[in-house]
Design a binder for these strands. Structure first.
Lengths: 155, 155
DNA sequence: GCGAATAAATTAACATGTTAAGTAAATCAG
DNA sequence: CTGATTTACTTAACATGTTAATTTATTCGC
């Protein structure tokens, strides 16, 4: 009835190498490894960079939306925004229509900072594309999107 | 000469949704979301579970190897092993041939703990497989493996 | 052999991940 | 309109990520 236990341990757990959580983690680490020197050179963390990139794309956002878009938990975001605001990259104001919400904006300095790193970042990404091929990367992105959609559907 | 800027921001950065680091992160979060309740119920972190799974597969390992296989940094591993050892799941001894190395082993209790969670873990994975299809998951794993291999080759 | 270089693990310090609890504002039921 | 619930964000506490410095042991050059 059930499929054979090929690649399974005695406890019916798949080989770690062939599980989505670990394979996704390892793949991501392999990619990020190439970006870390750039981020470190400009004294910005991976997460801060992600938040700023998302802000550039989405424009002024409330914390909940930003948290979701950048895949950063709300408590982490609260702390990070203190750092980013101290550096002059973001500002925060109360939503005039709903005093609970905090609206976050990228400052001109923040946009300028992204513009500074953009060429090198694009070059690193291009180097990765050169290894895999743009089509292959697009295919992988499509597959990951499919995974996301499949798991998002109501159970 | 260059490809058109479809899906690029004014700074030639790809849309965040279509970048490997963010897509991989989001995909992984979507998967892990389903495992977290199980891990939380047994008071074990994702990383601790990963280390134990790797230990089960690889057998006694030194810290460097374990760190690499489980994608956990050495300082994190040092701290985690204190917790795991206190719970009686792992033991640590000096390598008799090289006193710098620490050899880590899974105890019987550690193996028993994995055996306890294995059925539920396998069930969660099976539910994910039911949504995506085993073939599609295998394909995704192959693609991730290809990505890993491509980036690992000497530059 | 011996000192310099290298390697393995740990410690330290700070940022982020993660869950739970707390605070303040908006919404809902009656 | 008012008390209870819900929502948005923050704070707290602890684990892990991350880099740098430290410690101890091994290896290399001579």
């Amino acid at each position: 009835m059930t499929t054979p236990d090929k690649g399974k341990t005695p406890d019916n757990l798949a080989e770690t190498r062939r599980t989505l959580p670990i394979a996704l983690l390892r793949a991501r680490e392999a990619v990020m490894e190439r970006f870390r020197p750039l981020l470190a050179a400009h004294d910005i963390s991976e997460q801060q960079w992600r938040v700023m990139r998302v802000l550039l794309e989405a424009g002024e956002s409330d914390a909940t939306q930003l948290s979701r878009l950048a895949n950063v938990l709300a408590p982490s975001l609260t702390r990070m925004l203190r750092t980013l605001e101290a550096r002059g990259f973001t500002t925060l104001r109360k939503d005039p229509g709903d005093a609970r919400r905090a609206l976050i904006t990228l400052t001109d300095a923040g946009r300028g900072f992204i513009r500074t790193l953009a060429p090198e970042s694009a070059a690193i990404y291009a180097a990765i594309e050169a290894r895999l091929g743009r089509d292959r990367i697009d295919h992988i992105l499509d597959e990951l999107d499919f995974l996301l959609q499949s798991l998002a559907e109501a159970s």
